[in-house]
């Protein structure tokens, strides 16, 4: 039983990481109906820049407690990823807003490759170890183990979701976002500055990406230039699972996918007599993705919308 609870906790933590990243995908998709392939790379950039900033800071004799040092690193990486997000939208997506849908998707792949390769140029291909700065004391929970950092990640995913929901529902920018996502041309007639709203979406999404990247790095103790791809893909799956464009759906989808993966990797082997097992862990995400898209393209919490051409 404690093993099962541990698997649930594992799934919850991984799922929260997916959820944090999925929020970024879902925000952009909700407004532009565009898969921002490069979001996984923004997550990677956030982690890598934070590591570099922290190592420079601690190397130059700044003596701060661990968590503050991480915050200082984030203060460096968040503006940079925000700028990256802004630039990506401006350069690669905005000129193609009226183009066939294939076009921005291809530039998105291009941006993703470019960011990844630039990261390889800067940091080389080897993994960087993430300094041990955040508290990670273990707690016992019904025979299973959970650390402070893991609790932080789960809480953070929920808090960020709550914050975004409040922003979308209550603020002026949020109202503008909703308007743009419903109908761009009408929104613009109503005096909404569409370009500003879209840019802000990318900026906020990228900042969240950086935070998510740091959480990934801290939790696993390392970061590397190619880390963004797989985790980005899974987060995207989570967003689709929950109903893309829906903030609460992204979190629900993330948690569900995390638990499917953990429990699947843990129990599928014994159930199928070793035919399927943990070696198919990565397949679960893709299978879920395909099944959801085929049978319920609107996801768990999404509304059924007419297909846009």
């Amino acid at each position: 039983m404690d093993i099962f609870i541990q698997q649930l906790i594992n799934g919850l933590v991984v799922g929260s990481i997916y959820a944090l990243i999925a929020l970024g995908y879902t925000m952009v998709y909700g407004i532009l109906q565009l898969i921002n392939f490069a979001h996984g790379e923004i997550v990677m950039m956030g982690a890598m820049i934070t590591i570099s900033a922290v190592s420079i800071l601690s190397g130059s004799g700044v003596n701060l407690p661990g968590p503050l040092l991480v915050v200082a690193g984030l203060l460096v990486s968040i503006p940079i990823t925000m700028l990256l997000g802004f630039t990506i939208e401006r350069v690669a997506y905005r000129p193609l807003r009226k183009a066939p849908r294939l076009a921005p998707l291809i530039t998105a792949i291009g941006i993703s490759i470019v960011l990844q390769q630039v990261a390889v140029l800067i940091w080389k291909n080897n993994p960087r170890s993430f300094p041990d700065l955040l508290p990670h004391a273990s707690h016992d929970f019904m025979g299973a183990v959970i650390t402070d950092l893991q609790i932080l990640i789960v809480v953070l995913a929920l808090v960020v979701m709550g914050g975004l929901l409040i922003m979308v529902e209550k603020t002026k920018l949020g109202r503008a976002m909703r308007a743009v996502s419903m109908n761009q041309s009408v929104a613009s007639l109503m005096g909404v500055n569409i370009n500003y709203v879209i840019s802000m979406t990318f900026v906020i999404g990228s900042a969240l990406g950086a935070v998510a990247g740091v959480m990934v790095g801290a939790n696993y103790g390392l970061a590397y230039p190619t880390m963004g791809f797989m985790i980005g893909l899974k987060a995207f799956t989570a967003a689709v699972l929950g109903g893309i464009g829906n903030l609460a759906g992204a979190v629900a989808g993330g948690l569900l996918l995390g638990i499917i993966e953990s429990v699947g990797a843990g129990y599928l082997g014994p159930i199928t007599g070793g035919v399927l097992g943990s070696h198919y862990q990565d397949i679960f995400a893709f299978m879920v993705l395909i099944l959801v898209l085929v049978f319920r393209p609107s996801g768990l919490l999404g509304e059924r919308v007419a297909e846009r051409a």
């Binding site: 350069v91 076009a103 291809i106 792949i109 291009g110 941006i111 490759i113 470019v114 630039v118 140029l121």
Partner: peptide, 13 residues
Amino acid sequence: MLLFGIALIFVML
């Protein structure tokens, strides 16, 4: 790979 990425973006734009 960097050139491939740039080529994809450049061609589309």
